[in-house]
Structures are given as C-alpha cells and as structure tokens.
C-alpha cells in the first residue's frame, strides 16, 4: 500500500512537472492573491536564513528549501 502511494505521488509529480496537467491551477486572471507578498513562498529570506542558521547550529539536520552552509555553527 505504501509503495502504491509512493508510486502515485511520484507519478503525479512527474506529470505536473512535465506539464501534463495543462489545466492545473488558476487562470492568469485568478492570480490576484498569489501576487501578494504574503503569498510568496519565502517573503523574508533573511529572516528564514537567520532561523535556519540557528537550527543548523543546534540540530543535526539541515536542508529543506535550500542548501545550508557558510559557517561552522559549532557553539
């Protein structure tokens, strides 16, 4: 079952990325909300980077949206 879900999820992701779902998502004239700053995927990248640097310094995990790097964070 888990495998089946994984295959479906991967298949859907490929289909979306290949443009297979051509009518997926809103029409251009329906993007009024998406144009607002608060709907940007990361409206404050400096704040996100500062948070990530703290978490990277105190936890064993990194990664996610971007690539963690640029400093030891050993304290």
């Amino acid at each position: 079952m888990t495998h089946r879900i994984s295959i479906i999820a991967i298949g859907c992701a490929i289909a979306i990325s290949a443009g297979g779902c051509a009518s997926f998502g809103p029409k251009p004239w329906e993007k009024d909300l998406m144009a607002r700053k608060e709907m940007q995927i990361d409206p404050h990248p400096m704040l996100t980077a500062a948070d990530n640097h703290i978490f990277f310094s105190k936890e064993a995990s990194s990664g996610g949206r971007g690539f963690a790097g640029g400093g030891c964070g050993c304290n």
Partner: peptide, 10 residues
C-alpha cells in the same frame, strides 16, 4: 536540490 512549486488553486 530539486524543487517543484505548484499553484494548486487561487
């Protein structure tokens, strides 16, 4: 990093 961003609905 491989990323996929999708506007699902309005």
């Amino acid at each position: 990093v491989i990323g996929l961003t999708q506007v699902m609905t309005r």
